[in-house]
C-alpha cells in the first residue's frame, strides 16, 4: 500500500487492535512497538474500515456528522496515510499490505 485515494479499501492489519482503555477513558490503537491515541474523528474513521472504499466511508461520516465529505475524506487520507506508511493498514483482500491491481 503506497498512496491512498478515495478508491482505496484499507483495513487495519490483523496485528493491530483498536480497543477501549478504561484507565485513560479513551480509545487506543495498539500496534507493534506503537500505542496511538486516535482523536474522535480518527476513531470514527478507523471503526468504519471494513473493506469499503474510503470515498464511501467519508460519505457515511458526512451523512452522520453533517460535514462536507471532501473535508472528511482529506482528513481521513492524511491520518490513514501515516498509518499505512507505518505498515498498520492492508488493502482489503491483500494479505501483506501490498496493493493488488487497482479495483475499478
Amino acid at each position: 500500500m503506497v498512496a491512498l485515494t478515495a478508491e482505496s479499501r484499507p483495513v487495519l492489519q490483523p496485528f493491530c487492535r483498536l480497543r477501549d482503555d478504561p484507565v485513560r477513558g479513551r480509545v487506543v490503537l495498539l500496534a507493534p512497538e506503537r500505542v496511538l491515541f486516535p482523536c474522535g474523528t480518527s476513531q470514527a474513521v478507523l471503526a468504519r474500515l471494513d473493506g469499503r472504499p474510503l470515498g464511501e466511508v467519508a460519505a457515511d461520516l458526512a451523512d452522520r456528522y453533517a460535514a462536507p465529505a471532501d473535508v472528511i475524506l482529506a482528513d481521513a487520507l492524511t491520518m490513514l496515510q501515516d498509518l499505512a506508511d507505518q505498515g498498520f493498514l492492508a488493502e482489503a483482500g491483500a494479505d501483506q499490505g501490498f496493493p493488488k491491481e487497482a479495483t475499478p
Binding site: M1, V2, E33, A84, D85, Q86, G87, G97, F98
Partner: peptide, 8 residues
C-alpha cells in the same frame, strides 16, 4: 521499501 518494510 516504503509500504513494505518499516525500519526503525
Amino acid at each position: 521499501l516504503r509500504g513494505r518494510l518499516v525500519i526503525d
